[in-house]
Simulated scan of single mutants.
Amino acid sequence: MADDLGLDLPNDLDAFIGNHFIYTYANGWRYEWYARNATTCDYRIHQGLVGGRWVTNQTMQLVQLAPGMYKADWHEPTGTCVSLYFDIGRRVVHGTIFFPQWIAGEGQHPEKTICYQNEFIADMNRFRDEGPAYPYVVIGEFAKITFMEQRGADNDDVINAAPGQLPDGFLDRTN
């Protein structure tokens, strides 16, 4: 804990929990992410290497780094690790994704993850265990937040359908 180090960092997650974001990385990948509560997030991927994938109730670690700045980290059943930094004031995300070889390596199979993961956890674990995992493919990119709204904590209506099932124009709103 930061307090154990005498850093006196803020720890007010209330302003962040319940926020729903859509952001597009510099490489063109488009993600949607929801801070369900202090320990879980939901997301769907609209464009990118694993576009079409979606997950609900993903366990995460969430911290506040400074006013308006938050970091979420998690490890998926696929073996993928994700770290997201949100700068709300500047509407910027920096994401680092640590893909195992079986997903992002040359000649591998990202398509195996394109599903509603919650219904295929055993498969994701099996694919992860079959590997290969190393060396990880590390992708770090900045993204622009193109949509942001407060939806309240634990709202099952936020991320409740596969990517591509949003009303027309939803991804281009600039709230």
Results as ranks from 00 to 15, higher is better:
residue 129 D to E: 14
residue 87 D to Y: 03
residue 129 D to L: 08
residue 89 G to S: 13
residue 105 G to T: 04
residue 96 T to S: 10
residue 112 K to H: 13
residue 126 R to P: 02
residue 105 G to D: 05
residue 102 W to G: 05
residue 78 T to V: 02
residue 134 Y to M: 15
residue 95 G to C: 09
residue 97 I to H: 06
residue 80 T to S: 15
residue 107 G to Y: 05
residue 99 F to C: 03
residue 79 G to D: 10
residue 118 N to G: 07
residue 123 D to F: 02
residue 115 C to I: 00
residue 104 A to W: 12
residue 85 Y to P: 00
residue 130 E to F: 04
residue 78 T to A: 12
residue 111 E to F: 11
residue 90 R to F: 02
residue 106 E to I: 01
residue 111 E to N: 07
residue 83 S to Y: 09
residue 93 V to E: 07
residue 84 L to M: 14
residue 123 D to Q: 11
residue 77 P to Y: 12
residue 122 A to G: 09
residue 95 G to P: 05
residue 120 F to V: 00
residue 136 Y to K: 07
residue 121 I to E: 04
residue 130 E to H: 11
residue 136 Y to H: 11
residue 78 T to Q: 08
residue 130 E to G: 01
residue 138 V to P: 00
residue 110 P to L: 00
residue 136 Y to N: 04
residue 104 A to G: 13
residue 100 P to C: 10
residue 116 Y to H: 14
residue 89 G to M: 12
residue 105 G to P: 03
residue 124 M to A: 12
residue 88 I to E: 12
residue 93 V to T: 13
residue 105 G to E: 03
residue 130 E to D: 13
residue 126 R to D: 13
residue 81 C to H: 12
residue 112 K to V: 01
residue 96 T to E: 09
residue 133 A to W: 06
residue 78 T to E: 14
residue 136 Y to T: 03
residue 83 S to V: 06
residue 122 A to C: 03
residue 107 G to S: 02
residue 116 Y to F: 14
residue 80 T to C: 09
residue 120 F to K: 14
residue 139 I to C: 13
residue 86 F to S: 07
residue 113 T to Q: 08
residue 103 I to E: 04
residue 108 Q to G: 05
residue 117 Q to Y: 00
residue 114 I to A: 06
residue 123 D to H: 07
residue 97 I to M: 11
residue 130 E to K: 07
residue 112 K to L: 12
residue 127 F to K: 03
residue 125 N to F: 05
residue 109 H to G: 01
residue 86 F to H: 06
residue 83 S to G: 15
residue 89 G to Q: 13
residue 129 D to N: 14
residue 82 V to C: 15
residue 116 Y to R: 13
residue 123 D to C: 05
residue 116 Y to Q: 14
residue 137 V to D: 06
residue 125 N to W: 10
residue 97 I to N: 08
residue 83 S to P: 01
residue 116 Y to V: 03
residue 115 C to W: 02
residue 134 Y to W: 06
residue 121 I to W: 01
residue 112 K to S: 05
residue 126 R to G: 03
residue 107 G to F: 09
residue 137 V to F: 04
residue 111 E to D: 12
residue 137 V to S: 08
residue 101 Q to T: 12
residue 85 Y to C: 15
residue 110 P to A: 00
residue 77 P to L: 13
residue 138 V to S: 01
residue 105 G to V: 04
residue 86 F to C: 12
residue 93 V to P: 08
residue 90 R to V: 09
residue 79 G to H: 03
residue 119 E to T: 02
residue 92 V to I: 15
residue 107 G to H: 10
residue 118 N to I: 04
residue 77 P to C: 11
residue 79 G to M: 08
residue 88 I to T: 12
residue 88 I to G: 10
residue 100 P to I: 10
residue 81 C to S: 15
residue 78 T to W: 02
residue 137 V to H: 14
residue 93 V to G: 07
residue 135 P to T: 05
residue 117 Q to C: 13
residue 97 I to V: 09
residue 135 P to F: 07
residue 84 L to D: 09
residue 98 F to M: 11
residue 118 N to T: 00
residue 94 H to R: 15
residue 91 R to Y: 11
residue 84 L to I: 10
residue 132 P to V: 11
residue 126 R to N: 11
residue 137 V to Q: 14
residue 105 G to A: 04
residue 133 A to V: 13
residue 81 C to I: 02
